[in-house]
Nucleic acid binder design. Structure first.
Lengths: 198, 198
DNA sequence: CTCAGCAGACTAACCAGTCGGTATGGAGAC
DNA sequence: GTCTCCATACCGACTGGTTAGTCTGCTGAG
């Protein structure tokens, strides 16, 4: 009954909605999740959802925007460090694995639901994704020019190769597996770096 | 007006339905494709579809079954060859890239729509998928035991790493890119083999 | 008193699957 | 050779259920 935007528990309603939507989208897919289920999981009603978001599609877009922002920030932080390029690349490659595992729901949504976004939003997400991709590629090209990475494979392909696996983590990663997220990340970064040995 | 199962063009109705479904599922996703659209694209009506398939879900399962069968056969052929393990692995790793590109629609469906299958069918597909995975892993372990591949990364991880990228081909492969499918396949197989150098 | 912040009944559209019906090629009777 | 009968192949209107989004109205803080 209070008017405050944070009733029930402490978190504001829009965030509760986003969290509920993220979980449900990852669990049963975008189309299989009804708006009704989302609002029930968030402990509100449709009125609240359409008060904060323009559409179901908007909600999905917000999920994408959040994860894109986060990943770009982290990549930039690693790329801007003052270390040899191998170590910057290794750090960035491993970090994206760890943060992906920490947000497996986001990852599952990301690669399964892009085509559910409206065309313009899809385009927007692709553009941001490309920025991320380019930054990563620049790291590899830097290493190639410096002679510390093999030039046998175009940097583009290497990036796609690595991120293909990262995006697929949500399919094959098991939290009860033998490796901690950090160990797994180090292994995958190791594979990438070894593939790049001259 | 003939009773034959192949009217209109030459292909039998069930195959026409499967082809139409494959294309549409890849294009707009399983849930966004109505049964009505499928039958219209195949030039028949619902009666025909439900005559040959038990459900929409069944249709999806058939798509999976077909591609799984094909890929397993091809992998087996490469693995059974009488060549050094590096070359068998290279051949298999490149071949799966080429056949994936040749059936990009199947690949897009594969990794986006697994969770739309009914639980038992999902289990069945996973089991077949695991067989494929194991065969591939066995190749890598063979090379590791023989000392021609590095043992730094568990074979399991290497397989997931490679197939993550392959499954993602449908996201980033562009037919108008600079590389032919075979060249791209050789590059990716090269990356895999280089990552496995001792 | 007013308006952000929500509640929840309502609507218009859609959709998977059903079911009674039609046409046709062939198997067997004669 | 032809007539009967039936299984196969398919048609398409219909049903029961679901869903995104709308809209009117309530409530309490400032």
């Amino acid at each position: 009954m209070p008017r405050t935007t944070t009733d029930g528990d402490g978190t504001p309603v829009p965030e509760r909605l986003l969290a509920a939507a993220t979980r449900l989208f990852a669990e049963r897919g975008y189309d299989r999740t009804s708006v009704q289920e989302i609002v029930e999981a968030a402990g509100v009603t449709k009125g609240a959802l359409y008060h904060y978001f323009g559409s179901k599609d908007d909600l999905l877009h917000e999920v994408y925007a959040r994860v894109l922002r986060l990943q770009q920030e982290r990549l930039d932080a690693f790329a801007d460090q003052d270390e040899p390029v191998e170590e910057r690349l290794r750090g960035a490659a491993a970090d994206v694995v760890v943060t992906t595992i920490e947000n497996l729901d986001d990852a599952a949504i990301f690669f399964r639901s892009m085509h559910h976004l409206s065309p313009e939003k899809n385009k927007q997400v692709r553009a941001e994704r490309r920025r991320y991709h380019e930054r990563f590629r620049a790291l590899i090209e830097e290493g190639q020019k410096a002679g510390v990475f093999s030039t046998e494979t175009p940097a583009d392909l290497v990036v796609d190769y690595h991120f293909g696996s990262v995006h697929h983590l949500s399919t094959w990663y098991r939290p009860d597996g033998p490796l901690t997220p950090q160990q797994l990340a180090d292994q995958l970064a190791g594979l990438l770096l070894r593939a790049l040995r001259p």
